[in-house]
Design a protein around this nucleic acid. Sequence first.
DNA 1: AAGCTATAGTATCGTTATGGAACCAACTCA
DNA 2: TGAGTTGGTTCCATAACGATACTATAGCTT
Lengths: 155, 155
Amino acid sequence: MRWADIGEDVCSVSRALSVVGDRWTLLIIRSAFLGARRFSEFQKDIGLTRHRLSDRLNKLVEDQVFEKVQYQSNPVRYEYRLTDRGKELYPVIMTLVKWGDKWMAGDGGKPMEYEHKSCGNNIMPVLTCPECHEEIDPHDMKAMPGPALQALMNG
Amino acid sequence: MRWADIGEDVCSVSRALSVVGDRWTLLIIRSAFLGARRFSEFQKDIGLTRHRLSDRLNKLVEDQVFEKVQYQSNPVRYEYRLTDRGKELYPVIMTLVKWGDKWMAGDGGKPMEYEHKSCGNNIMPVLTCPECHEEIDPHDMKAMPGPALQALMNG
DNA sequence: AAGCTATAGTATCGTTATGGAACCAACTCA
DNA sequence: TGAGTTGGTTCCATAACGATACTATAGCTT
């Protein structure tokens, strides 16, 4: 039996994609990391229809990636802020930026550059092993069924 | 003027998502990292329709994420292998796995576990600064317009 | 006070993408 | 000879999406 055979539900990638796996959501989250909070800011950044944006933001609030915070009354208006759950999508965004920079580069250099404030360098993050601190090479990673998948395979 | 205002085209995230930003593509790539190569393997792993799979695989070959390699003649049959461009999506997949493990956990523990073969530890990769080797905290990253965006902003 | 602008949405409608099911073609194996 | 495997394609109904228009509340302006 193949591991993945068992179903999409026991797969962290598909679980994650059930939240961020559509055409717009990751762009909305990128905008949030660049400072957007209000409906119109997201719309200007991304250029999707208000209808769609309304939809996605509501779903992201439901999924607890954003929280709605009232910033005025009369009329009542809310802004959308990343929760902790949302903030932890930063690595996903940055790995996409890195891949896009390298493999989908346009003319005239990078769209954006990133400074690591705590060391002052202009960098692009790398994925490393928390134990030996080496950069991760896919060939050095061995994937094994974890408890959830083992349970399914044995019964 | 907002940076992102200028348009989706000068954004590495949206460029990357033009390749991997749909409901299925990242699942296909995940399957490839777990060893899938043939049409039917992908289909069993993911459970999408053959129609859709055919579509996505062809697009991914066009986008040079996969290459078609003939594995038999009579009838001619191809398998789909990740190119270098495709292999470098590994960090995107792993950061999604990590987020899914933490925030979308199901009962009974993790679906999968990962061993870093070169050090022998069971790990989950972290995003670090290649200069100071500290783990990246979104608050410590400063985003600035790069050359491509500066050019656009100045004219 | 009437009219214009800003913000944050909804409603409607036509087009595109997707899912489900059936079909097809070449070969293998019993 | 006939069922099964592999790797698709065709057709149709439904879901998601884009474009455009409309709504609602408030401030600013003349």
